[in-house]
Design a protein around this nucleic acid. Structure first.
Lengths: 261, 261
DNA sequence: TTAGAACTGTTACTCGACATAACAAACACG
DNA sequence: CGTGTTTGTTATGTCGAGTAACAGTTCTAA
């Protein structure tokens, strides 16, 4: 971040000053305006000059807050990570822990809902890197992916703990997953790390995620527009139930409907 | 296309003249150069000036062949549609018709292979619309999607004809798909049109496609880089076998391995 | 209270890319 | 061989990113 107000200590004992609040508000407004433009134009692109115009400023003023387009883009990507993660976690946690099938369904539905509502931000984090953007060193590239997987993993882990996870309909045919999980200490900071799950379950998690992501991204990018809404809803819900079943999750208790937007 | 040589009749009786061949070759070189730049930079973006420089020309010369960036982009998109479709069809047709499970596996593997080899072109047709690009009127937006579905559908139709399609593990819970297929005449030029399939099978086709697309796009965009190659291969193949099974397709006969690239 | 520093905005400017205009050379074809 | 078409060039206009120099405002501390 550019021109950031230096932190006095490690934690700011003082509440944010008037200036700091104004600055934070401006930063937030810039990001919101950029997201509005993205939404309006249906792409992950935006012009600094447009943001400035909409905010009643001149373009160079924005450089007081973001060094360049990349830095703003990075901020938007980080926010998108957090928002998607929060949305999914919140949906999941509204279902009791003893209903892992329901929790998975909630995760899938909120994933889909978020992507439908914010296709551009979805593309930002789970699509091809945007033109001109180069991730900062060791940046959060594919961070969302790992985080999403980790969330999914915790869900399956709960099911194992509760003893309600049946054997998935997938097998580790060539033993490569078993081997990988056995040496998981080599791959830190990924879903491979963390609480242990059987190889078939790891495979099942990936299968669940890939299935829900496939439908979700096709739909978010408009490639299923030829299908009536109610058919899309029905197919998605049915698919989710199916992958949950083949993954060994128990049937969901109460399945919240995905409301239209 | 700009400055196109007018067709004398409906079909050119005369073999293409020297000039026409030179022009076609230049157009092809422009597209190849653009794709090379996209691949090199890992994005769907390119600069006219870069293309010209690599071709030993000046930028304005390119406008003799494409009116603007959009027109070149459109051509690249159309080509990508065709290439993916051809790759998938070719892979499928190397498996005998009486092995629909094998044919589906071949389709899935070639889909994945193509996306891995050409992630930018994959994003071009199955990702979010490219910044700045506006599809021509009634353009081929999501054409690939419909075509892919149609191919998948023909595959299932063959299985039905051969009488080897079992009942899928999916059900048309609320009847919306049944209703849609009953009035399919309303939705021309989509996979809904064409040879009839039971609603559960339609659902199963979408499920198959979404599953393979989900894994494929996550991988193509680098979101599965934290997984070792052999694990990715194993998980994909296993998932494909699973979705084929739950879709009612018989076990594949000989499953061709996906060679490393 | 007030001087100075920090912050936040402005206008003026450079640079690079898309795109068009005007022109020149090469080519096809009567 | 001469004329019109094609394909390239250079010169130019426009627009957006990003920088420089400067001005007004706000915070802070003597």
């Amino acid at each position: 971040m550019v021109g950031q107000i230096p932190q006095p200590g490690r934690e700011p004992e003082r509440p944010p000053s008037r200036r700091e609040r104004a600055r934070a508000a401006t930063i937030e407004e810039i990001k919101q305006t950029a997201m509005g433009l993205m939404r309006e134009q249906g792409t992950t692109d935006f012009r600094f000059s447009d943001i400035a115009r909409l905010m009643g400023m001149t373009a160079p003023a924005l450089y007081r807050y973001f060094a360049d387009r990349d830095e703003l883009l990075t901020a938007l990507i980080v926010d998108a990570y957090d928002d998607l993660g929060d949305a999914v976690a919140e949906a999941r946690d509204q279902i009791p822990v003893d209903d892992p099938g329901g929790r998975f369904a909630a995760v899938a539905q909120s994933y889909r809902r978020w992507a439908r509502e914010e296709p551009q931000r979805f593309a930002l984090i789970l699509g091809l890197p945007v033109p001109g953007y180069h991730a900062p060193e060791e940046g959060p590239t594919s961070e969302a992916a790992k985080r999403a997987m980790a969330q999914l993993k915790s869900l399956f882990y709960e099911a194992i703990q509760a003893g309600v996870l049946r054997r998935p309909m997938l097998t580790d045919d060539d033993g490569s997953i078993t081997r990988m999980l056995a040496e998981h200490h080599k791959v830190k900071d990924t879903p491979i790390d963390g609480p242990p799950v059987p190889p078939e379950t790891f495979q099942a998690m990936l299968h669940c995620w890939a299935s829900m992501h496939g439908f979700t991204s096709l739909e978010a990018y408009g490639h299923l527009d030829w299908l009536p809404d109610e058919v899309r809803d029905a197919v998605f819900e049915s698919s989710i139930r199916l992958v949950a079943r083949v993954a060994g999750l128990p049937e969901p208790g109460g399945l919240p409907r995905l409301s239209d937007d």
